[in-house]
Amino acid sequence: MTVHLGSLRLRNPLMLASGVAGYGHELGDVIDLGRVGAVVTKTLTLKPRQGNAPPRLAEVPSGLLNSIGLANVGSRAFISEHLDRLRNLDTRIIVSVGGFTVAEYAKLVLELEEVGGFDAYEVNISCPNVKAGGVNFGSTPGKAAGVVRALRSKTGRPLIVKLTPNVTDIPSVAVACESEGADALTVGNTFRAMAVDLDSRRPVLGATGGGLSGPAIKAMCMAKVWEVVSSVRTPVIACGGICSAGDALEYIVVGAAAFQVGSACFRDFRAPESILEGITEFCRRKGVRSVAELRGTLELPRT
């Protein structure tokens, strides 16, 4: 099931999505990390961030709403307290990086380059650009390209860019990231959403709005993956609502090279394991030799 994303080689296409696996070691007791292809860390920023006002989670039909607010320990504590433990994990480690200015992204990557001990970056461009008045870096091709360009010149490690689905024209952002040298694109982050408590007439989340994940977003994310694979050659990593082997395989048929599992872990930490088993079983049953053989085999009507 080996997968190549640029120069990054994974033992299988399953990655744990950013934000559900902490800094990698928190889930060591419940998920056999020696089985997954890669772990993406919680998004790291230069300075520690406390995160948003609680409540930060709410369950909605077939999904999970979160407004964590990028709560993270910051680069210094990450390097001194977490990186060593990550090094010892038997899987690929992808550090998710975020920032509020291009300079912040660049400084963070330079600090991480100095210490090393991980395999790739996932650039989270869903952070609000404070200089541009809080608009997400991922919301326009120009801003997204600016971040990728700045980081491309600072590292030889694979750069995966995680796109936000909250745009009308995701291919234009994807093309911009590709032309600046992104090695892979993750599609994508959560969908903006909101829930209301009728009794109190208050938003359920402390931050009012949040991001939706889980089965509720799979069909929407499928369309985004399709739009992106139709417009770039860079490998695409699908991320959105994957709970079963079937979910993952649908994305692969549409054209994804790899996939990430997020919220499904909260329902059952055995999800990654059973997804991998299900894929093996599917391939055996259909006489398919490798997952790569299935990639992009979507049959379109010829009319």
Binding site: G22, L57, A58, N66, A71, N72, F266
Partner: peptide
């Protein structure tokens, strides 16, 4: 009590504000 996601300290979902600041 707080609404929980992972239960293991990984998702930062169950934060409660501390009297000394932070969560």
């Amino acid at each position: 009590e707080a609404r929980m996601g992972c239960g293991l300290g990984a998702c930062q979902g169950c934060a409660v504000r501390k009297s000394s600041g932070g969560f």
